[in-house]
Simulated assay, not measured.
Amino acid sequence: MKKNIEPCYYGDYLQLDKILGAQKLQSAKYSDAAHEEMLFIIVHQVYELWFKQILHELNATIDTFNQKVVKDQQLTQVVHRLQRVITIQRLMNDQIAVMETMTPQQFLSFRDYLVPASGFQSIQFKRLEISLGLKREFRVDFDKQSFYSRLSDDDRALLEGLEAKPSLFDLVDKWLSRMPLLKTDDFDFWHYYKQATDEMLSDDHETISTNDTLSTTDKRQELKDWQSTKENFDALFDHAKFEALRKEDKFRLSHEALLSALFIKQYSEEPVFNLPFQLITALTEIDEQLTIWRYRHAMMVQRMLGTKIGTGGSSGHHYLKRTTESNRIFLDFFNMATFLLPKSALPELPNAIKRKLGFYLNSVN
């Protein structure tokens, strides 16, 4: 049965008069209206609507992790909401194909009327990035040096305030770092793990050294890469070495959080690890979809503008291409595959650990 007293009508509920009346062609102010500008406006308005929904999901997720306790039921809801974000991201990435139905010359018919507007000025997108964990210190140089100087005082205050709050990355790092029972009197996973990784690395070194198909130069490079990988493995067992590599941006997660995430991924089939594994996988996918978004956007800009500067004064395609690899958030989750071992090399978890192991955020401090 209906619960409303006054009738609710479709157009009024969705405020279609405001939405459908919000396409004001800039080209029409100065000349004949450019036909393709309507498409350009609508595509970007739809992006902003999806940004709003993604922020709605992320803010709820951050609120959950910012509590003193996060229970399994809440984690189920978090994973569901993050999966929704991923689905929206895929839709947004596909939407770029709609924009690409416009030719470069069609874009040029109204492009010069848009100066100095730029997607770089999307406050919602910056909120999305900062909320995930891409704060100022992690951006490419052009982004972190120039962005805030282009904003109104209100927008600058909004984003700087957000910069000061814990991001989803920060809260997940703290949550992972408190995972208990990696080591007990009867079981030391890291003892088994180090034995297995030492054997694996030794086998890799032998494979490179005895590979007659490699030239001297190639073999030298392969051994150099092997040494770098070995140093990363060594850092797993030495907090000081890990922190040194972290200062060089080799890692971003804290030492404790990385070990916990690795433990979860090694035993992802265990029921107790299922939700944490889904969470890590969802965050990895969100970062991947965001990278795809940047890449496809960069390719579209190159297709439309070539090497011209953007309307906002950035270096256009060059800048966007740099952000594709530089502005990553959960890169440690991607690189974790380096440290994974085959199931056959892992010790069986004792029943006592299977019974006791739980994932609750005990404190936000």
Rank of each mutant, 00 (worst) to 15 (best):
F263C: 02
L159K: 03
D234I: 00
K247F: 08
D170K: 05
D155V: 04
F237L: 03
K224N: 11
S167A: 07
E270Y: 14
Q227Y: 09
P271I: 11
A164K: 13
T210L: 09
T184I: 07
L182H: 14
Q221S: 08
V172C: 04
R150Q: 15
K219A: 06
D204K: 14
P271T: 10
K247N: 10
Y193C: 05
D186F: 07
R252W: 13
D203H: 13
D170P: 01
H239S: 06
D153S: 15
R178V: 03
T197W: 06
Q227V: 11
D203T: 14
T213Y: 09
D238R: 01
L162Y: 05
V272C: 15
L176W: 08
E206C: 13
S152V: 11
A282Q: 05
A261I: 05
L262Y: 04
F233K: 00
A235K: 01
R156C: 08
L162R: 09
E199M: 12
E256I: 00
A257W: 07
K241I: 01
Y193Q: 05
R156S: 12
A235G: 00
L259T: 02
A157S: 13
P276I: 08
D225M: 09
H239C: 06
E248I: 03
H255Q: 03
R246Y: 02
D153K: 15
Q195K: 13
N211V: 01
D153A: 15
Q266G: 10
Q278V: 04
H205T: 12
L253C: 02
A240F: 01
F187S: 06
L151H: 08
D203P: 05
E248R: 14
R246T: 07
W190Q: 00
H191L: 11
H255C: 01
D186S: 12
E231Q: 14
W190A: 02
T281D: 13
T216E: 15
D204M: 14
R178S: 10
D198S: 12
V172H: 06
E206L: 14
N274C: 11
Y267T: 12
Q278E: 12
D185V: 07
F277Q: 14
L159V: 05
L223N: 05
E243G: 04
R156Y: 08
H239P: 01
K241G: 02
A235N: 01
M200Y: 09
K194V: 03
V272E: 15
D154F: 12
L176K: 00
E231G: 02
M200A: 13
L151F: 07
P166T: 10
Q195N: 10
D198A: 06
A261C: 06
A244T: 01
H255E: 00
F263G: 04
V172A: 04
W226I: 02
L223R: 01
L182M: 14
F277V: 12
H191F: 11
S268F: 15
L176A: 01
